[in-house]
Computed example of a mutant assay.
Amino acid sequence: MDVKNDGHPGSTQRLGLAAAPNGLCLVQDLVNTAGMAVPAFPDLLGEPASAQDWLDGALHVWTEQTGQAPPRLSLAEHDLDRLRDLRDRLRGRLAGEAGDPTWHPLTLSLSHQGGRVTYRPEGDGADGVASLVWTETLLAAHTGTLTRLKTCANPACGAAFYDMSRNGSRVWHDVKTCGNLHNLRASRARRRTSAETAHPIA
C-alpha cells in the first residue's frame, strides 16, 4: 500500500518502494534512512533536523497504516548515534546475520477500548523510537510478516523492501537495477572464465 506522508522526506518513498504492511513500515523506514552513493541519497540520521523530519514523516505513515494516534517524539543530537546503531542492528537481522542475543527494554502504554488494543511509547527520543520499532518487530514476527522484510542482496544498495512475491524468493529491491547489474557482472565473469579456459596462458 502506498501512503502519502504530507511532504515529509520518507526514506522508503525516496527509493520508490511501497511501505511494508501495518506497523512494520516503521522498521523498514528506519533501515532505509541510510545514505547511498548511487543514487546520491544523504543519511537522514546525519543531522537532528533531517532526523526529526524523517521521524515525523515515518510516524505519519505508521499512523495511517495502524490507525493509531501518532506519538509525539522529538530527537536531539545525542539520540542520533543510538538510532544509527539501532538501524545497523536491524539491517543485520534482516540480512540474516547471526549475532549475540540481546535484550531490548520496551516502555509502552497499552489501552483497550472498543475491543481494540492500542499502544504508544512512553519514552522520548531514541528510547521512544526503539520501543516502538522493537514492538513492531515482535508483532511482525508473530504474524509471519517479518520474514518478508528483506534487504537488497546488492551490497552497494541494501535497501529494505517488503517481498510480496508468491513464494517469498525475491532478493533484489529492484530487479531492473540491482538485479540486472548483478546478472551483467556474473555474465561477464562467466565469459572471462570461458575465454581463459579456451585459451590458457602458457
Rank of each mutant, 00 (worst) to 15 (best):
A40W: 00
A141E: 14
R14I: 08
L75N: 07
A37V: 15
G115S: 11
H78W: 08
L108N: 11
N32T: 09
A95Q: 14
G92C: 09
L24A: 08
A76F: 12
E122R: 13
R82E: 14
E77K: 11
S111F: 10
D56P: 01
L106R: 09
V3Q: 07
S131M: 03
A49Q: 10
S109T: 14
I201E: 13
G96T: 05
S194Q: 13
G96H: 09
W172V: 05
A95R: 13
L59R: 11
W172R: 01
L26T: 03
G114D: 12
V175S: 15
A141P: 00
A130Y: 01
N32C: 08
L132Y: 09
L15G: 00
R89T: 13
H78E: 09
S109E: 13
N167R: 15
P9S: 07
F41E: 00
P21T: 05
S111W: 03
S11I: 01
A153L: 11
Q68L: 03
R72W: 07
H142Q: 15
A159I: 01
A76M: 05
F41A: 10
D88A: 14
E64R: 15
T147Q: 06
L15A: 04
R191P: 08
T12F: 02
A18Q: 10
L132I: 05
A153V: 06
F41H: 13
A18C: 06
D29G: 08
L139A: 12
H142G: 06
L139S: 05
A156P: 01
P42A: 11
L184G: 03
A76G: 15
G35E: 05
A98P: 08
L83S: 08
A95H: 06
H60D: 03
L17N: 05
Q52H: 02
L73D: 04
R89Y: 09
D100A: 11
G57D: 04
W103N: 00
R82D: 13
N154L: 04
G16R: 00
F161W: 11
G114K: 05
T143S: 15
V117C: 03
E47P: 06
A156F: 01
P39D: 09
G57C: 05
